[in-house]
Simulated scan of single mutants.
Amino acid sequence: MNVAIAESFYKSLSELTREEQDQVRETVFLFLQNPKHPSIKWHKLRKKGFSSIYVNLDLRIILYEGREVYILVYVDHHDDA
């Protein structure tokens, strides 16, 4: 499985605080090692192919799951994501 990171992900990441960015990077690193790691909590979204993974109780990474690729699309606080 391949992983791609959209420009929109980098843009939304840059708008978070330094501490939040560090937390997101840790989650992304774990995800890159093993997308199905048991500590990564997934939530399927209504739009087909899209899911969110939890960074912490507040931050979410939005991603698209294709046949051969995961695309990290966006990251933000829960209500905004």
Rank of each mutant, 00 (worst) to 15 (best):
E26N: 03
I62K: 03
P38G: 15
H78A: 05
H37Y: 03
R46W: 04
Q21K: 15
H77S: 15
V69K: 11
L16A: 07
I71D: 02
K11Q: 12
R18K: 15
R18A: 05
H78N: 02
V3F: 02
F50R: 14
Q21S: 02
S51F: 15
N2D: 14
T27Y: 03
E26R: 10
L32K: 02
I61T: 02
S51I: 01
E68R: 14
L32I: 03
E7Q: 06
Y54W: 07
T17L: 05
N34T: 06
S8V: 15
L16M: 11
V55D: 03
L30P: 01
E15G: 10
H78Q: 05
K44P: 04
S12G: 14
V69T: 10
S39Q: 09
I61E: 02
N34G: 08
K48G: 01
I5V: 14
V73P: 00
N2I: 14
R67N: 13
V69R: 05
Q23W: 07
H37D: 04
G66C: 14
K11V: 13
S39Y: 07
K36E: 01
Y70G: 13
Q21H: 13
V3T: 08
H78V: 10
T17P: 07
I61C: 00
E65R: 12
K36D: 00
D58K: 08
S8L: 05
Y10R: 13
L63M: 07
V24F: 13
I71S: 06
R60F: 02
H77C: 10
F31W: 11
L30K: 01
G66K: 12
K47Y: 10
H78D: 04
P35Q: 00
E15N: 13
L63W: 01
K41Q: 10
T17Q: 15
S39I: 12
H43L: 11
L30R: 06
Y64K: 12
R67V: 03
K48W: 01
S12L: 05
Y54M: 06
K47A: 07
I61S: 02
L16V: 05
L32A: 01
N2A: 12
M1S: 04
V69I: 11
D22N: 10
V3L: 07
G49E: 13
Y10C: 11
V73E: 05
S52Q: 11
D80W: 03
L72E: 00
L30H: 02
A4G: 14
S39L: 06
N56R: 04
R18F: 09
E19G: 10
W42R: 14
Y10A: 13
K11I: 15
L57E: 10
A81S: 12
D58Q: 13
R60Y: 02
S39N: 10
R46K: 12
Q23K: 14
I53C: 05
K41A: 09
I53F: 13
S52H: 10
D79F: 09
I5K: 00
R25P: 00
D79T: 10
F29N: 09
L45E: 15
K41F: 12
T17V: 08
E19L: 11
V28M: 09
K47R: 07
V55G: 01
I5W: 00
M1T: 06
Q33K: 14
E65F: 04
I71W: 03
S14V: 07
L16D: 12
G49L: 05
K44V: 02
D79E: 12
T17S: 15
A6L: 09
Q21I: 00
D80P: 03
L32Y: 00
D58T: 11
E20F: 04
L72R: 00
R67Y: 06
L59E: 09
A4I: 09
L16F: 12
